[in-house]
Simulated scan of single mutants.
Amino acid sequence: MFVKYLIIFLISMVPIVELRGAIPVAVGMGMEGWQLFWAYVVCVIGNMLPVPLIYFFARKVLIWGKDKKYIGKFFTWCYNKGEKGGKKLQAKAGRGLFIALMLFVGIPLPGTGAWTGTLAASFLDMGFKKSVIAVMCGVVIAGIIMGAASLAVSMGAGGIFSLLAPKA
């Protein structure tokens, strides 16, 4: 069982895939009940672990690597994506930036996870504590959505309702 938790922990730390890919893997591995609950907790922790590093160092590393021969194009793309995401979020959110960041991270679409959200928050100089809390709330929301969607696919839509129905 430890190996299964380790696998989903590592998957949830990978950019782009993150918790959105790790939870369906956990469901696909046959985790259910309390195992699935603990898998969810492991995925949230794994997804949040890189957040402080991203907040404090990602922008500096991207700026450093933008003019390098082999990695310059990729680093420039990542830098521009973070800057564009931050500006777009700021323009739409105004003073509701915390909620906007939380929803941005919480809606499980490609490119809207904890990595991109944290990078955007660092570009906006949002503040570390506020950024981490907003991203964590978003990761929790995304995890709930992905867990429900994964269970619905694996059990069929009727399976979800049978889990919620009171036992006789």
Rank of each mutant, 00 (worst) to 15 (best):
G72I: 00
A149T: 13
T112L: 03
G65S: 07
A149F: 14
L124K: 01
A157P: 06
M155H: 11
F98K: 07
A58V: 06
V25M: 11
A22C: 06
P50E: 15
M136I: 00
V61H: 06
S154H: 15
A121T: 08
L103W: 02
G94M: 02
A114V: 00
D125G: 12
K60P: 06
G127T: 08
G138V: 05
K73P: 00
G127A: 00
G159W: 03
C43N: 11
G65C: 09
F98P: 03
T116K: 02
V17D: 01
M1Q: 14
S122H: 09
G158D: 07
V139H: 06
S122N: 10
G33N: 09
W115S: 05
N47Y: 09
P52T: 12
G28D: 02
V14C: 06
K4Y: 09
K92A: 08
V153A: 13
F9H: 03
V17M: 09
F74T: 01
Y5F: 15
A39P: 02
G156N: 00
F37H: 00
V27S: 12
L36P: 00
M29S: 09
G156L: 10
W64F: 08
W64M: 11
F75W: 06
M31K: 10
S162P: 08
K69Q: 14
L36I: 10
V139N: 02
M29R: 04
K92E: 14
S150N: 13
L103V: 12
Y40D: 10
G65Q: 12
I11A: 11
G138S: 05
